[in-house]
């Protein structure tokens, strides 16, 4: 994974040449991957929380409501077209059964917020590996056009 562009929490990355983009160790976080197979442009955002509630942030990728529109904007800037973009998501697990910041199940809330954003932007969700109680690593391979998920116990599979 040394050649992989790493997307940390709150970060957004877009690539317009063959390569891999990945988010390692997603717990309650949700990573949203977008890929335009014609323009060969791919990107990912690593969302920590559902809603910015209007706060200004240097890391728009941190929230679903700011991160997803920003990822789409960067994708389009590199030549991707919305009607061709394939969207897949991974993460949103519940790892410790603790009530984080009165959010309840933060992983579930993140997934709901991501879905709302995608539908508001007319982006169709074509694959997902979400929920449960296991951490995940999510990798978009632009050259192969694949979206893969890895867990500690369950190994590697494509979504």
């Amino acid at each position: 994974m040394n050649d992989m562009l790493n997307v940390g929490i709150g970060e957004i990355a877009v690539l317009d040449k063959p390569g891999k983009i990945g988010a390692i160790g997603l717990g309650s976080c949700v990573a949203v991957a977008m890929f335009d197979p014609v323009a060969k442009v791919g990107g990912m955002v690593h969302v920590l929380l559902p809603d910015s509630r209007g706060q200004k942030t240097e890391l728009p990728g941190k929230f679903a409501d700011t991160g997803i529109p920003e990822l789409l904007r960067l994708m389009e800037e590199k030549g991707a077209r919305r009607d061709r973009i394939i969207v897949k998501i991974a993460g949103g697990a519940s790892l410790m059964n603790v009530n984080v910041g009165n959010f309840g199940d933060i992983g579930k809330r993140n997934v709901e917020a991501v879905r709302e954003q995608l539908s508001a932007l007319n982006l169709r969700l074509q694959g997902e590996d979400i929920g449960g109680n296991e951490g995940r690593t999510f990798i978009l391979d632009l050259a192969a056009g694949t979206f893969s998920v890895k867990t500690t116990r369950g190994g590697l599979h494509q979504i």
């Binding site: 160790g25 717990g27 309650s28 920590l48 790892l95 910041g101 959010f103 951490g135 995940r136 500690t152």
Partner: peptide, 13 residues
């Protein structure tokens, strides 16, 4: 679990 995944709990807070 994975280090990143367990840290999510703390960082979300």
């Amino acid at each position: 679990d994975m280090l990143g995944a367990v840290l999510n709990v703390l960082l979300a807070e």
